[in-house]
Each structure stands twice: as C-alpha cells, then as structure tokens.
Amino acid sequence: MKHIFLLYSLVSLSISALAQEVVIDTNYYAPPPVVRKRVLTEDPDNNLEPRQSRASRRRSELIDQLNEVQTWYIGAESGFRSDASILSNSFDRLVSNPTPTKTSWSALVGYNFRNAWSIETGYTRAPIHLDISIANNASPLAFNYLNSGYGIPLRIKRRIGSGKQAANGTGFWITGGAWLTPNGAGQTGDFKLIGYSHLGRNRVDTLRLTNSTIVFKRVTGVAELGLDYTTRLSPHLELGFYARKYWGLGNALKADLVYTINNSAMQQATITANGTGWGIGVALRYIYGRQYEVKTL
C-alpha cells in the first residue's frame, strides 16, 4: 500500500511541473542575421612591380610636370689634345717641329641656369709641348719639352638649335672660355750635335747644331671655342662629347737653335709654343643639386 502511495505522489508532482512550464519563443527576439559582403582586392604577392620602382615612377611623373631652374654638378673630362709650335728656320729641312697629340683630363665644377646657360671651372691637366726633330737618315733625333702642364679654365656654355626645346640636360651647346696657365719649371734642356758632310774626296764640312730651350716663368693663357653635345643618362648623370679649338695668349716655351758649318757660316732659328691647337674628348657629370619650378601651360 505504501508503494502505491509513493508512486502516486511522484506522478502527481511530475504532472504539476509540466503544467507550470512556460515555453518562450526566442526567435522573435533574435537579432537579424549578419550579411557578409565579399570584397576581393588584389593580392600584394601578385604585384610584380617593386615598391621602389613604383616610387621612382611617381617621382618621374612629378618631375615631368616641372622645369629645371638651376642645377649644380661636378664632372670629369678626358680626351686628346694637339698643340702646335712655330719654327722660324728649318736649316734646309734639317730641323722640324712636329705637332704632338697627347691625352688630357680635367676635373670641374659647374652651374646651369634654366637649361640654357652654364658656367664651369676647375683643374685641367694639358701640358703645352715643344717638340724638335733633327733629320738623321732613316731615324731622326727627337727632343721633347713641355711646361708644368696644368691650367685653371673658366668656361661659359650656351644651348643652341632645336636642342633648346629638348628634355632637361640634352642638346648642343656652344662653349667659350679661357685658361690661366702657370708655366712653372716644366721639362727643359740643352743639346749639342756635331756631324760631317762629305762633298768630295778632299772636302769634309763640320756641322754643329746647338739648342737651348726655356720655359717662361710668367703666367700665360689659352682661349678656347668649342661645340658640346650632352645627353641625360639618368636624373643625376650626364654624358657629353666635345670638340674645341685653342689659341695661345702668350708663349709658354722657346727654343733657340744655332747652326754652323766649319765654325764660320752661322744660322739661327727659334721655335715657340703657346698652346694653340685642337682637342676632342668625352665628359661625365654628376648632378648633386637642383631647383625646380612648375611648368607654364
């Protein structure tokens, strides 16, 4: 009887709990579903253009909108230069004065204004030569003299022709200027030569030739006029080619020659050298500073 009563009590409690249960529909209070938008962008790993190249391209696009107002540069030139001398008497072609062609080089600094005018100065290594050649059968005797070999140039350039409208740094230029040439000690020397001339069985003439060469201690000069062509290799590098004509403004070297036959018949001659000649070469310039302005349309 107790067991039946206990079972009855448990069943009654279960029915009472079910009657009190409240079911709440949570769907009404749930927030709306989130809609995810799928946005695709370019994978940076697939961009083959380096970041530095993109920056350089953007910089180039900006520079294309600008004009160069002023630039400053340092440069180096190297080429070949010839300088002739003047002989007053060849002693019936016994003596000649060859025109040597030697290498020369310069280190320069310069300033460019509006890609139309330039001025530059620096140091030039281009000795002035005086060469003497003495006829001696198939192998002539050669004597070579030169001054200290350096000069201080001052050069002005002006852009010409259609190149004036070309890109910055490219085009033809007319150049003109002058050098100061401290002659210094240089390379000098004297020589004495003796020879014999057989005019018959019983006649032998004794020939003597003496020379004294000096380098003038005073400062002389060289004037120049030339044509340059310049092309821009990069924002900071320029390559140029030049051809120039030089005129001496004062004698740098002088040779005095005396020619005698049998110590009686005497002739004299002089050779002078002042740097007159031609030059060709190549130049490389590095632009280390510049100033821009916006182009006018």
Rank of each mutant, 00 (worst) to 15 (best):
V219R: 05
T206L: 15
N262I: 09
M266H: 04
G200Q: 08
L209R: 03
P235M: 10
N202G: 13
T230W: 03
L233D: 07
T231E: 13
M266F: 04
R201Y: 11
Y229M: 08
L233Q: 09
R218M: 08
G221F: 12
A223C: 05
L233A: 13
D228Y: 11
G200D: 15
K254T: 14
N262Q: 05
T230K: 04
G248Q: 05
A255I: 00
T213I: 09
G200L: 03
N251Y: 04
Y229E: 05
R201F: 12
T230H: 03
T231H: 09
R232H: 08
N202W: 10
R218W: 07
S264F: 10
V219P: 00
G221S: 15
T231L: 15
R244Q: 14
V222W: 00
A243V: 11
I214A: 10
K217W: 01
G248V: 05
A252Y: 00
N263S: 15
N263C: 05
N251I: 07
Y242W: 13
D228W: 12
V215S: 03
S264P: 01
L207R: 06
R244I: 08
W247L: 11
G240N: 01
L227I: 15
E224Y: 02
R203H: 10
E238I: 01
L249W: 02
R232K: 11
R232W: 04
T220M: 05
L209C: 08
S212M: 00
S234P: 08
N202K: 11
I261Y: 03
T231W: 12
S264N: 12
R203C: 06
G240T: 04
G250Q: 04
R218I: 08
L253F: 01
A255R: 00
N262Y: 07
F241I: 14
T213M: 08
V222Q: 08
Y259D: 03
G250W: 01
Q267K: 11
S212V: 03
L239A: 11
R201C: 06
S234H: 08
V204L: 13
A223L: 14
Y229A: 11
W247P: 00
E238Q: 12
L209W: 06
N251S: 13
K254H: 10
T210M: 02
I261Q: 12
N263P: 06
K254L: 13
T213R: 01
W247E: 07
P235V: 07
S212D: 15
A265K: 13
L237D: 09
K217P: 03
R201T: 15
L199H: 04
Y242Q: 05
T213C: 10
Y259L: 06
L239T: 04
T210D: 14
L225I: 15
G240V: 05
L199V: 12
S264Y: 10
Q267P: 04
L227Y: 03
L257C: 09
G250K: 01
M266G: 00
V219H: 03
S212P: 01
G200H: 02
Y242G: 00
L207T: 06
L249Q: 08
G250I: 05
G248I: 03
L239G: 03
N202D: 15
N211H: 04
R244Y: 07
Y242K: 05
N251R: 06
L253E: 06
A265F: 12
S234I: 08
